[in-house]
């Protein structure tokens, strides 16, 4: 099976008053169908640009983006997106918010079928009983759950997640990671997740890609072994600690803080904690 998402030698720069600001440099990336790819990297390295390229919201200066064997030139209905800000429409109920994409993409569903589909997803993420509430009546975590439902309600082939859990507290975030696994078990989609949280990346993804500092290119790939259904306990094993350490070093290299890999202790810490997430340089 061919890769569903293929990014080939993409180079992109933004025009600024001080001249072009290169953000992506000869970046290549491919994600097989049904796979979950996490992209980590220093702040401002062009991760969000990458999502906008995949979604077809922008065109790269050079290089190509292919989805399902078709070159991406404009936005397409087979993509779903969720952002750090849940961007729910305050004038709609939760149910109406989730139905929104079905009002845009071509579909043969009747209104009742659309709502049934939305209800089914809301139940899956634990929001049954909140269908008729307004977004302002929900907590941040619940809003983000609704936002995830909206991103996949039209059964997109590709789900683009741009730090969707970034603004949530640690416990809510872990809850939502598990919700993501539950959704993936029910709904087939290929996903690209942008994140700053290394634990999140190895918990959710099949492969973690580390981007270099700006202009970004794919610096390092870490396959996450498939050991069956994951639980939060899996984050506290020596294997997980080793992966986190590897990623942390790669991030430091990307940030230009480590002169060379291998000069530091590479053994896993006995009990990895939040400090496994590197501080992001301002």
């Amino acid at each position: 099976m061919a890769d569903l998402i293929e990014i080939r030698h993409v180079t992109h720069a933004y025009a600024t008053p001080k001249g072009p600001l290169p953000v992506l440099d000869d970046l290549s990336l491919s994600v097989p169908e049904g796979s979950f790819c996490a992209v980590v990297g220093p702040s401002g390295c062009g991760k969000s640009t990458l999502t906008r390229l995949i979604a077809g919201l922008m065109k790269p200066d050079r290089g190509e983006v292919w989805l399902h064997g078709e070159r991406v030139k404009s936005p397409r209905a087979t993509v779903g997106m969720a952002f750090q800000n849940p961007v729910l429409l305050e004038w709609r109920t939760i149910l109406q918010n989730v139905v929104l994409p079905l009002e845009i993409v071509p579909t043969k569903l009747t209104q009742a079928q659309k709502e049934a589909r939305a209800r089914e997803l809301l139940e899956l993420v634990g929001l049954e009983g909140f269908e008729d509430k307004r977004p302002s009546e929900l907590s941040g975590g619940m809003r983000q759950r609704a936002s995830l439902c909206r991103a996949i309600v039209h059964r997109p082939e590709v789900l683009i997640l741009d730090e969707p859990f970034g603004a949530l507290d640690a416990f809510t975030r872990e809850d939502l990671w598990q919700t993501m696994h539950a959704l993936r078990a029910e709904e087939p989609f290929t996903s690209v997740l942008i994140t700053h949280d290394l634990r999140e990346s190895i918990f959710l993804a099949d492969e973690v890609v580390v981007l270099s500092g700006r202009p970004a290119t794919a610096q390092f790939r870490l396959p996450v072994p498939d050991t069956g259904p994951r639980t939060l306990d899996d984050l506290y094993t020596p294997q997980a600690a080793a992966m986190l350490n590897t990623l942390r070093h790669q991030i430091e290299i990307a940030q230009g803080r480590t002169p060379a890999a291998g000069t530091r202790k590479t053994l896993p810490d006995p009990a990895p904690t939040e400090s496994a997430t590197p501080e992001i340089l301002p």
Binding site: A55, S74, P75, M81, V87, L100, E103, I104, I160
Partner: peptide
């Protein structure tokens, strides 16, 4: 982002104006 959630689905300018 409000615009993007609909633009990413290929919504027309009119639809974005009317719905968002």
């Amino acid at each position: 982002e409000y615009r993007d959630i609909l633009r990413a689905l290929g919504a027309s300018r009119l639809a974005i104006f009317r719905k968002i």
